[in-house]
Design a protein around this nucleic acid. Structure first.
Lengths: 197, 197
DNA sequence: CGCGACGTTGATTTGCCTCAACGATTGTGG
DNA sequence: CCACAATCGTTGAGGCAAATCAACGTCGCG
């Protein structure tokens, strides 16, 4: 196994136990992929044919509405998944763009191989069930935060929760993630010049 | 099998195929439960010891922040799941309240039985993986809507998407779900008296 | 070096909230 | 079944958080 798979392996083992045989089988289906900075690995309207796991670098998962506003749904760094889950599951047209914002490295698996993996390693079903359930919790919490916290509170919550990510992206990207304008982020920052983090 | 389980069975079969044996095993672990209108089946701070599936009636899943504002996360009617997923998974303190807003009927399974079910019917892992993934999609979409649509647009989107639910809840509850005030919903309605739906 | 995206700042606007008052509806106990 | 309370829904006045628009400085990159 190479270094890339070690990251994925560690991620898996945090959720459930797996034998070496199972890990080998899993490893077999994932392929490494290098992506340049600025490269799109998925565009709106495309079908998402892969499920990706980030080994290195950073991705921005976003959507653009009719008015042309880009909204960033989330950032994916090392140890995160990148995919348009809806498009991947149903092999339907994607509503999201996925773009590398740094030179990046991923492990990817195709839809067909994913199904083969489920056949060959039934425990993978459990693994991805657990991970999906955790994802549901995270999205629920984020929605609640959007309803209960002000823009300023959300901004500092983001900085505190994802300090490594914050340092690698622009304020404009943070603003887009939080659902506010770049200008307002700038005003929040000015107001809090003394505050650290 | 009783009528309640038929609803659950139909739900399951929409996601994957199951043999009669598997269905019987599953049925064995679920128990019917009647709940009165206004009854809480979970309160903030409690541990969520069940996963519930609504057969009849309606539930409101909500959270109250420090300022005492209640925010409704979602409504669950027939064919929906009700649980505090985070609390159920980790058997930790719940951040949500779950209250019946109509006389209701549920199927419930305990955490222990759920684990037994996964053991006895491995395909249940697949089933719940698929359902959790769909839930992720739904939560992602809802977040995007909150970032891209105005309160008015979200209000009508809700009416159009959940016409049956809309008719069974108050405007105040819709407002709370949308993250806006009751008063503002009233003003949206006034402005659109001519519009149907 | 120059261009285009980013960041900042100020003026102005607006979507939605807060507060308060009051009518309408629903629920409840006698 | 009625009386009365409680909650809901509506309306208006006023306020605030955040958006919009515009101008300009700054930085990174080809």
């Amino acid at each position: 196994m190479d270094k890339g798979f070690d990251v994925l392996k560690a991620n898996f083992l945090r959720h459930t136990s797996l034998t070496d045989d199972e890990l080998n089988s899993i490893n077999h289906y994932y392929e490494e992929k290098q992506v340049e900075k600025g490269e799109y690995i998925l565009r709106q309207g495309d079908i998402c044919r892969f499920e990706g796991f980030v080994i290195e670098g950073c991705f921005e998962i976003s959507t653009s509405d009719a008015r042309g506003n880009e909204r960033i749904l989330y950032f994916a760094v090392k140890d995160w998944w990148v995919m348009e889950i809806d498009s991947f599951i149903g092999q339907t047209s994607s509503e999201l763009d996925i773009k590398a914002i740094e030179p990046s490295q991923l492990l990817v698996i195709t839809k067909t191989d994913k199904e083969r993996l489920y056949q060959e390693v039934p425990k993978a079903e459990r693994l991805f069930r657990i991970m999906s359930q955790r994802a549901v919790v995270a999205w629920q919490r984020r929605l609640i935060r959007n309803h209960t916290m002000t823009a300023e509170e959300r901004y500092f919550h983001f900085l505190n929760t994802y300090p490594e990510i914050s340092q690698r992206i622009t304020n404009k990207q943070i603003a887009s993630y939080l659902g506010i304008t770049q200008e307002f982020v700038s005003k929040i920052r000015r107001k809090n010049l003394s505050r650290r983090s």
